[in-house]
Design a binder for these strands. Structure first.
Lengths: 150, 150
DNA sequence: CCATATAGGACTCTGCACGTACGATATCAG
DNA sequence: CTGATATCGTACGTGCAGAGTCCTATATGG
């Protein structure tokens, strides 16, 4: 349904937390308590992030995680890709020989363009856009300020 | 995982098919045979599209579906919303009192902005962009005008 | 009347998101 | 050295949504 999973939510929160403390190691417990996230889940996510190189880890007592790169250099696309796997706006993006797209699919080309647009959008949006409250992420000239409720 | 479902794929194909034949009624069987889609599924989708007012239907022999509006006026957001329900880039968009966002969520505001950007992007992209091959789909302030060319 | 087509359900099956659990390993404090 | 704390790796279980099927009713054309 065109939504990110909770994993990405958690990952975003954790990365935001770490981005604000770039010089210290923070334990998963810290973050989970701060935002009431289920600890085991968060640990799994941090493990993944570590494995993908988005954070660095230190084991043992006083260990924890630290952000690996400058938040301004971490695109949302990379984060999502790390946590959820490759982004595929439509099914037949990465294959080329999808069962639907065997030469007869009339919407393949344009939809691919849309996919790239979305991808570029997520590439351009960085962690810094999410962390810093005042920042306008990628020219937000859209005035849709009304009624987000329901 | 940030992807559209097959329903949307099918709906897009069906709508594209109907958009190219705006003056005649086409049966679900026609479309399903043309693109090798499972007929019952396609019928379900067309039923939904009809219910949402995106197509008009005629029952009985020689019946079928016809596109309801000008393809240029049908946004992808509307189509997706019709088929898959409300678009929610992140979990806590439509509620305001999500379990995660009880005042302490540090990424809520910026993420909401991202959500709106994505939404506007899908609002701006229309069926015509998908149907007509040469059209540039929706340069709708999503930023990143990196010339993505096939 | 009969064939064809949609209308509108209910229904099953499967995969993934989500959360849990356990043992192993590495570091710090005493 | 020993114990406490933390990550590491992996495996398991549950619940829900996506994907597809089936059935009956209804309307139209021949």
């Amino acid at each position: 349904m065109l939504s990110l999973t909770k994993k990405t939510d958690y990952a975003l929160i954790a990365m935001a937390y770490l981005a604000e403390r770039p010089s210290q190691f923070c334990s998963a417990r810290q973050i989970s308590q701060e935002y009431s996230l289920p600890l085991p889940v968060l640990m799994n996510i941090l493990k993944t992030l570590n494995h993908e190189g988005l954070v660095v880890s230190t084991r043992g007592a006083k260990g924890g995680y630290k952000i690996a790169d400058d938040p301004a250099k971490v695109s949302l696309a990379r984060l999502i890709d790390a946590v959820e796997g490759p982004i595929r706006f439509v099914q037949c993006v990465g294959k080329g020989e999808d069962d639907l797209c065997v030469g007869s699919c009339p919407i393949r080309g344009p939809v691919l363009k849309l996919h790239r647009k979305l991808n570029d959008f997520l590439e351009a949006a960085t962690l810094a856009d999410v962390v810093v409250p005042g920042t306008e992420p990628a020219s937000a000239g859209v005035g849709t300020e009304s009624g987000v409720e329901t």
